[in-house]
Design a protein around this nucleic acid. Structure first.
Length: 531
RNA sequence: GCCGCUGUAGCUCAGUUGGUUAGAGCGCCUGAUUGUGGAUCAGGAGGUCAUCUGUUCAAUUCAGAUCAGCGGUACCA
């Protein structure tokens, strides 16, 4: 036999950037999705499903072009020469849906949606080419309450899935404030579009690199630890000073906790400062006042942004959401060519470690904002909209790091096939147990009893049902129930295999017609599961 | 895209200063036990040493390139 005769087989492999999901993960994920869904429902949103792909032109700016039809999105040409693309988010399909059904929908229209989205780009750490989003959006509501609601909704979702208050934060900003800032530093002219984009990206790095990093990025550029160099925006010192002054205004607005009128069980984030006066709280009102009077006093759009933020803050305040949950953060940027007003981002604040124990840069688990221009692409009239999106896989990873994902699911109990001639009898027992609501299966493999016991063990079966000749031929027909959970406990004290096997620990026999009742008792003891 | 690190069995890793049959632990399969999961013991399967090219009498080992994974960074609807 030469090597050349080797059969050519396809190699079993996973497409790049894709993942398989296993039982444990799917269960935990479903449980998490259910918690999120419950919050959306509670807020009054309606479910909506749209298809996985849409006509490419409906998805917006990432149209397939002749040269690279799959840049960014996965696309294909239909028989009728029309281009279709897999959706890359859930917002563009929503805009299409609203435009298509506008007349029949209640206005505002509030819906939630979940599903896979696809992006054809190089997968990175924690980034895949297929992933799940879970969105809630309000279409047809002007700026204000609808946006504030999105932030509170995100905070509630975080807590619903098990992230404690203080372990996450919703950071809020307003695009109009940034537009105002642009005016003030004299970059409003469209010839400075590129430069301003660089400024925004620099600001976005504030939470990552701190104020010094932002200064470098606004100026000449910054070299990071890995040796990569990022070109700066090359602003002059005066411009940098204005922007930096704006960003760090909150430091000026911190007052000692002792001077605030907060109660013990406050919902405010505490900051540290080099001083003996103890923890500080952010006086948001002071900060907005400073912005208004010293930064945006000559920018109409800027003042409008400050006003929008203040309106939202008032709603947070009256609803009891303090800065521990939702806080203003002028460095939140997001969707540069997309959002038109308030923008917000949900971030976890605890350390997330990978399986090697390294703390990794985790980033946000969700975000959103106001996109007043999106539906207009179809309708010609501007329909205001605001929404948010939860990155389900990322949130799941974060919860994993928190150890919040307990999997209490036990396997099904197993009816052993002791005698292949009597499968019908075993099947009947199985169905009886199922009819009683007990998760149960009959062994459908081809191996002997020992293998069946191993199978039961591997599946996490709480117990098995045994009926061989001994039970069958007893004076009155019996079945044996072996409690695998208790057996496992007992095995710790037994070292001799013969004793282990012949002792037949943790098993007992009952009359055939008492099977269901006896199983119920065993399950109740171990899993709390009731029939 | 850019920078760095890493690729040897299903998993975690050792090893070869270049030399015939590449190892361990865990896991998996079989048996000791014709009706009993654990433990123990015995046996077994499983590797083109990521791929390709080069240097060499000889490459899993050295060099280069490529690919993949990880981390950072960039981009992010």
């Amino acid at each position: 036999m030469s090597k050349k005769n080797k059969t050519r087989r396809p190699k079993a492999r996973l497409p790049k950037g894709m993942r398989d999901g296993q039982a444990r993960e799917i269960r935990a994920m479903n449980a998490m999705l259910e918690k999120i869904r419950a919050v959306y429902e509670l807020y009054g949103f309606e479910p909506l499903e749209t298809p996985a792909f849409e006509y490419s032109d409906a998805l917006g700016k990432f149209l397939p072009d002749q040269d690279r039809p799959n840049a960014g999105v996965f696309s294909f040409e239909d028989e009728d020469k029309q281009w279709l693309s897999l959706r890359y988010d859930l917002t563009a399909p929503l805009a299409r849906y609203v435009a298509l059904n506008y007349d029949g929908l209640p206005k505002p229209y509030r819906r939630y949606a979940t599903g896979s989205v696809w992006r054809n780009e190089k997968p990175g750490p924690g980034r895949f080419r297929q992933f799940t989003q879970f969105d809630a959006d309000t279409v047809g509501a002007p700026v204000g309450a609808a946006d504030a609601e999105m932030c509170m909704l995100m905070a509630d979702v975080m807590e619903a899935v098990g992230i404690k208050r203080g372990d996450y934060v919703i950071r809020v900003n307003n695009r109009k404030i940034l537009d105002g800032l642009r005016e003030i530093v004299g970059l409003a002219d469209s010839e400075h579009d590129g430069k301003w984009l660089t400024v925004l990206r620099s600001l976005d790095k504030y939470d990552k690199f701190g104020i010094d990093g932002v200064k470098l990025l606004l100026g000449t550029g910054r070299k990071d630890d890995s040796g990569d160099y990022t070109k700066g925006a090359e602003l002059d010192d005066n411009q940098i000073q204005i922007i930096v002054g704006f960003v760090i205004q909150f430091i000026e607005s911190l007052i000692p906790l002792s001077e605030s009128n907060l109660e013990e069980d406050h919902d405010e984030k505490l900051f540290n400062k080099d001083s003996a006066e103890g923890p500080y709280v952010l006086e948001t009102d002071d900060m907005l006042e400073e912005w208004r009077e010293n930064i945006f006093h000559e920018s109409e759009i800027g003042l409008q942004g400050v006003q929008e933020l203040e309106d939202m803050l008032n709603l947070f305040e009256s609803a009891g959401y303090g800065t521990l949950r939702i806080q203003i953060d002028p460095s939140v940027i997001r969707g540069l060519e997309y959002y038109t007003g308030p923008v917000f981002e949900a971030e976890v604040t605890f350390d997330v470690k990978n399986d090697k124990g390294q703390v990794i840069q985790f980033g946000s688990v969700g975000g959103g904002g106001r996109y007043d221009g999106l539906v207009a692409r179809f309708k010609g009239i501007e329909i205001p909209a605001t929404g948010m999106s939860i990155g389900v896989s990322r949130l799941y990873t974060a919860l994993q790091a928190l150890g919040e994902l307990e999997d209490e699911t036990t396997g099904p109990m197993l009816v052993l096939v002791m005698d292949k001639e009597r499968i019908a009898d075993y099947q009947k027992m199985t169905q009886e147990l199922r009819a009683a609501g007990i998760r149960c299966e009959m062994y459908v493999g081809g191996s002997g009893m020992r293998a069946q016991m191993k199978y039961a063990d591997k599946r996490g079966a709480p117990c098995v049902i045994i009926q061989g000749d001994d039970e069958r031929n007893a004076e009155e027909e019996m079945v044996t129930i072996k409690d695998l959970v208790e057996g496992s406990e007992l095995s710790k004290q037994i070292t001799d295999n013969k004793e282990w096997r012949e002792g037949r620990p943790a098993q007992f026999s009952v009359k055939r017609d008492e099977l269901v009742e006896a199983v119920r008792l065993v399950l109740k003891r171990h899993t709390g599961q009731e029939g």
